[in-house]
């Protein structure tokens, strides 16, 4: 079932249209990858979906109901969770306190910690350390753990792999796949495909604000991306 659906979404920055009618769906239990070069509008697409950037046209449907223009807090309560680019953690708080900050969402500290440490055992080992001293991969795990504390229906991930070693990224995406298998609709934005293609069920390529390609991640996608990123000398 399509939990999140964008229909003909248009959006602008500074009066310049950056999304020219984007159609995109994210289904429960699936990982959908949104790829494309810098400036294609990927982050804007996620921000429109999370309600923090207005759509100038088109519709955003959440569970089949129109959620266009809804307040970001209402969307958050409805289960849309955006993990923004960079690390979504408080660097000067310990891991434990980072998790503690999620107790406003109605779950107790013990429940949140138990779930987080079960999923990411490495966090249990560094529970008393400041998040800022963790490695990049551990910080992303903590961000994911924080995101999952709210029991999201839709998880929007922006450039999870940025600045991380391939092995770390691969492990993170195994977790993302696991999260999806539990029924969450995951929409992942990545500039570089390497990281996410192993776990994505569906992929779309965004170029200059339009979906240029969509389908299963296979050799056709690789050819498309190769031409797009590396081109050929004119």
């Amino acid at each position: 079932m399509n939990v999140l659906e964008l229909r003909g979404v248009r959006a602008a920055h500074d009066g310049i249209t950056v999304l020219h009618g984007v159609d995109l769906t994210a289904a429960a239990g699936r990982v959908t990858a949104l790829l494309g070069p810098n400036g294609a509008g990927k982050t804007t697409t996620l921000r429109v979906a999370a309600g923090v950037h207005p759509a100038s046209g088109g519709r955003v449907l959440l569970g089949g109901r129109d959620a266009t223009g809804a307040d970001p807090r209402a969307l958050a309560r409805a289960g849309v969770r955006l993990i923004p680019e960079g690390r979504g953690v408080f660097p000067n708080l310990t891991v434990r306190d980072n998790l503690l900050m999620m107790t406003r969402t109605g779950r107790t500290r013990e429940e949140i910690e138990e779930a987080a440490f079960a999923r990411f055992p490495v966090l249990a080992r560094c529970a008393a350390r400041h998040a800022g001293t963790l490695s990049g991969g551990e910080q992303q795990m903590l961000a994911l753990a924080r995101g999952l504390a709210t029991d999201p229906a839709v998880l929007l991930l922006d450039e999870l792999s940025m600045g991380l070693a391939p092995l770390v990224v691969a492990r993170l995406y195994e977790q993302v796949a696991e999260i999806a298998r539990q029924g969450v609709a995951v929409l992942v934005v990545e500039q570089f495909a390497a990281a996410v293609l192993g776990v994505a069920d569906r992929a779309a390529v965004l170029v200059r604000g339009r979906v240029a390609w969509r389908g299963r991640p296979d050799d056709g996608l690789r050819a498309e991306l190769s031409a797009l990123y590396l081109g050929s000398p004119r």
Partner: peptide, 13 residues
């Protein structure tokens, strides 16, 4: 202490 680090993230939480 979290407010020092990132106000917006506090709201998101």
């Amino acid at each position: 202490r979290a407010t020092v680090d990132d106000r917006t993230l506090v709201v998101l939480a």
